[in-house]
């Protein structure tokens, strides 16, 4: 009934789709993670100046579908003089869209750090910049691993939308195989499995990171080489 041999024949299309999905998602997520951090840090450090613009950006991302953003970038871009390759439009779209969500996730992380820790830093003369980079961001990152992993997974799944702006990603190439072979189940099933694999990798990475960051075993502090003190 099913003919899985056709997948072997179409392996090049599948691999090409996998590669495109992987690098576009990777770069898109990188943009989303870093732009989101910049937005959240700006909002945190000067709420009066940046609070409103950042909040607007977040609402815009949450209030509009990714597909519409992709259409605007890819089909609307040329009319205002921005010509993007479909792949680059995909990276940009995923990045800009994800940044809004990540800004909000980071903000949640920042907010759960007790204010007193910053007062302690201020009383020691530690600058705002150092307080941000050495005290707030490391703790915030620890807190946002679970929701952050979740958001990455969502972005990877939503990346299937870039197939609509003609990127040869997993989804689009699966459709191509379907059109060539008239077999529907096998290509989509194979592609579903591949998405699942990518996402499983991200999920496991998230768990591993969570575990690693939570490790607060006493460290050896042996200025004079006496290891007996390490575990008290």
């Amino acid at each position: 009934m099913f003919d899985f041999a056709l997948l072997w024949e179409a392996r090049e299309l599948i691999l090409q789709g996998l590669w495109n999905t992987v690098w576009i998602c990777f770069l898109g997520c990188l943009v989303a993670l870093s732009l989101g951090l910049v937005l959240a840090a700006l909002r945190l450090s000067n709420p009066r100046l940046f609070g409103y613009p950042v909040a607007c950006y977040v609402e815009l991302c949450r209030g509009t579908p990714l597909l519409v953003l992709l259409f605007l970038l890819y089909y609307g871009g040329p009319s205002i003089g921005i010509r993007l390759d479909a792949e680059i439009a995909g990276v940009t779209g995923i990045g800009l869209y994800g940044a809004g969500y990540f800004a909000e996730i980071y903000r949640g992380g920042f907010k759960s750090i007790p204010k007193g820790q910053l007062e302690a830093a201020r009383m020691l003369g530690i600058s705002r910049w150092h307080a941000l980079t050495r005290i707030q961001i490391p703790q915030m990152l620890r807190l946002i691993v679970p929701p952050g992993t979740n958001q990455l997974i969502i972005l990877v799944k939503e990346s299937a939308l870039i197939s609509i702006i003609s990127v040869d990603d997993l989804t689009k190439n699966a459709t191509t195989i379907v059109n060539q072979t008239f077999s529907v189940i096998e290509p989509y099933l194979a592609v579903a499995l591949l998405y699942w694999m990518i996402i499983e990798l991200i999920a496991r990475g998230g768990y591993a990171l969570e575990k690693r960051l939570a490790n607060r075993q006493p460290r050896h502090v042996t200025p004079k080489g006496d290891p007996a003190h390490a575990h008290g």
Partner: peptide, 12 residues
């Protein structure tokens, strides 16, 4: 220098 009721050590 200041010492607070709730210590405010940096947990990380």
């Amino acid at each position: 220098g200041m010492v607070f009721q709730h210590f405010h050590l940096w947990p990380h």
